[in-house]
Design a protein around this nucleic acid. Sequence first.
DNA 1: GACTTTACGAAGGAGCCCTTCATTAATAGC
DNA 2: GCTATTAATGAAGGGCTCCTTCGTAAAGTC
Lengths: 384, 384
Amino acid sequence: MADLRGGDLSRLRQLNSLTAIRALRRAGPLTLSALAERTGLSRPSMKEVAGELMDLGWVEEVPPSPGSMGRPARRYRFRADSGYLVGVDVGGHNVRAALADLDGEILAETRQPVLPDAPLEERLAAIERAVSGCLALGRVPVSDLWTIAVGTIGVIDVEGRVIYSAAVPSWRDLDLAGRIREMFPCQVLIENDSRLAAMAETRRGVAQDARDVVFLHVGRRMGAGLIIGGKVHRGFGAAAGEIAMLPESRWFDAPEHLNTCAAVPEGTPPEDAAGCTLAAARNGDPVALEAVGRYLDDLAVGTAAMVLVLDPQVVVLGGGFSRSADVLLGPLRDRLERRCMRMPEVRASTLGDECVVTGAIEYAVDHLDDRLFTPEHGPLPLTR
Amino acid sequence: MADLRGGDLSRLRQLNSLTAIRALRRAGPLTLSALAERTGLSRPSMKEVAGELMDLGWVEEVPPSPGSMGRPARRYRFRADSGYLVGVDVGGHNVRAALADLDGEILAETRQPVLPDAPLEERLAAIERAVSGCLALGRVPVSDLWTIAVGTIGVIDVEGRVIYSAAVPSWRDLDLAGRIREMFPCQVLIENDSRLAAMAETRRGVAQDARDVVFLHVGRRMGAGLIIGGKVHRGFGAAAGEIAMLPESRWFDAPEHLNTCAAVPEGTPPEDAAGCTLAAARNGDPVALEAVGRYLDDLAVGTAAMVLVLDPQVVVLGGGFSRSADVLLGPLRDRLERRCMRMPEVRASTLGDECVVTGAIEYAVDHLDDRLFTPEHGPLPLTR
DNA sequence: GACTTTACGAAGGAGCCCTTCATTAATAGC
DNA sequence: GCTATTAATGAAGGGCTCCTTCGTAAAGTC
């Protein structure tokens, strides 16, 4: 269960070092006095801690800020550029990637189109190009890349192996983490894309105040991502959130109401049909409105199931159709109100296409933090 | 988010004291050497820690165990009897209570029958009698009672107020925690009974190995309790697990299949009908078997919804009907297998009627541990 | 009764944090 | 340009917590 190890003096120092890093990461460059005050340590102690962190390369000094009374104070900042993270979104039509520093600040982005039916190797090559492109744009050597976090459709097991993917058949049984690790010598994390999108919304999107969140990925495919206690909930076999598999949830076929609507002009490519219906509904087309109503009737069932099971604070409407949130949000709320015991807030995603990539980076930052702040993993590494 | 406070030397000592307590609680009486070895501290340091804990009243010395070579070693034990906890199960027909020490070891149990339609004050009086009875049986003065944890049907808000209770109408809008605090001057915790039962199963029942558990309360009423990451999941408004409210889950009316079965002899009181059906099914009565089949068809839908949302390691079948687990378990597994993406283990509860009381005590122990092991709440109290 | 085994207790040392005070380097006012 | 004010720096001294090492004490074994 928990650790039974007692602490040494050095353990105390380690704790205080981590506290200092945490304070610097949260509040940007800080003077020694400010750091000491925030952490509750005395100035001399904090100076020692800061000196040690500078020796290790985690922290560096920045020029003092002028214009203040008294002797100018030294300022320290967390060296977010001592390592880099890449977030990747492997979608049906695109592979997106973004480069970020250890604070999760995005520095460069790339996009590689792929055909939905592209063979496996082509898709993997697109991932490699996307990541390399990011690194090149940011002028970051591969050796400084610490972590790649990948979001993709499908069920991914604990080791980063794809168990099941309805959308990308060639993905199945692929050791995706292994393949990417062959390309880039760094830590590789794989996670379901809906879960990463949920992550993004709780960290940088519309659900930053919430610790229990249900993210609805509404688009041509249905998916869900759960945040419980501020953390991604994967489930024991990484299959959490797959409510669409249950026929009674009425999720799986829900998008058909939008695809087969009579309001869609003939000759519209199938991937644009739902968008047409939603646009027509916005313009008040009664046929389209009815189709949207039927769609939401179905969507509300599976959503209510999740809400009743988890009682989240916030439900976030995300995915491709969330561009039409103005048409969807109100009626969805009405339908949920009738079914839910305690009505959660329902909000529309604001992050758009970069949602999964952003979430992947937040996920990578979290993993870094876990390694940093659980001292079981040995003392602070990185000796510059 | 997290604390930014750095640590003092005294903080280190506090950490080590708590580690020592934890080790003693887990492993019973220990010699100084054993304690030192387990915690990784040196003997002299551990001696100091132990001395301090004895002064505070958390730990006491026990006679050395004879029969070993060498000088007999002092032994210390956690004073689980320096405070007491009571768990209460407020059911429709009974109020059960159990007295336990700080280790959660049950010392005495009582039961007070109440009529299902008893007025509010009568029910509260039964609670008072049940708790007082426990204390008397265990010869524990009220002043040594630290915590009462109560499990009851219905939705309970964060402050211990009953929001909603279908079974006990007089319960509604009651400040249960407040009323009990008027009777006994101690900490009072209120929680939904299904959640406490779930807790009991993960701590002392059939799901001790699992951290993500769905507990099904199957009986004349349907309920569910969720354990996520080893902790009770309440949800933002304490309404988690209320899947029965969703008509599509087919939970609410599921027990009707058992109540209205033709295999039930005429004149059977309605509360025994389901039991008759289950008994008949066990004897191979085809009519009863069909009713059980329809019941499980319904039960499986809501259960599958929870499993697909959460992907738990274990589903525990508990509640009144779990006495007939032999009839239910296999067919339920078959039905879930067809619907779930990753099939969880399905196990039958073994704790029986004491389930909720046991869970309440575990819940109280957890709260104690939280207060003990999050040093924000000040240093170790209890100065004897 | 001597020997082995195991634990106890005291002494000395190192690390980490704290408080205090003289010193230093800026700005503000004359 | 000089002095006063302000705020941070750096060094000294002290206390607490942990560690290692030693001689001593109390059991069982031969």
